[in-house]
């Protein structure tokens, strides 16, 4: 999964679920588009669907600081990479 794939999916989620068309990469989503805490929780559900696996509590906590599109894409990229490389203990 490339960064472009992730970006395309996130933009699709934003349009479909939050009625936000082509959000800018580096703006604060709450200030610019009224993206609120209910949206944030539903975004996590959408990310779980996209990745095909559930997020851990720790991973959900990491999402608390996200404010921009770029940070969302970074976050999903990190989650996807983690899932591609299983932790040592599971090998």
């Amino acid at each position: 999964m490339t960064r472009q794939d992730i970006e395309r999916e996130v933009r699709d989620i934003f349009l479909r679920a939050f009625e936000i068309e082509n959000p800018e990469m580096d703006v604060n989503l709450r200030e610019a588009y009224g993206f609120d805490s209910i949206d944030a929780i539903e975004l996590l559900l959408e990310i779980e669907k996209f990745l095909g696996s559930e997020l851990t509590q720790e991973e959900k906590k990491q999402a608390m600081d996200i404010r921009t599109m770029k940070q969302i894409i970074d976050y999903i990229e990190m989650l996807a990479a983690k899932r591609k490389t299983p932790p040592e203990k599971n090998k």
Binding site: A17, I38, D39, I41, E42, L45, E48, E54
Partner: peptide
């Protein structure tokens, strides 16, 4: 299931 439902 609850985890996949849009509670909004």
């Amino acid at each position: 299931g609850l985890d996949r439902s849009r509670f909004s």
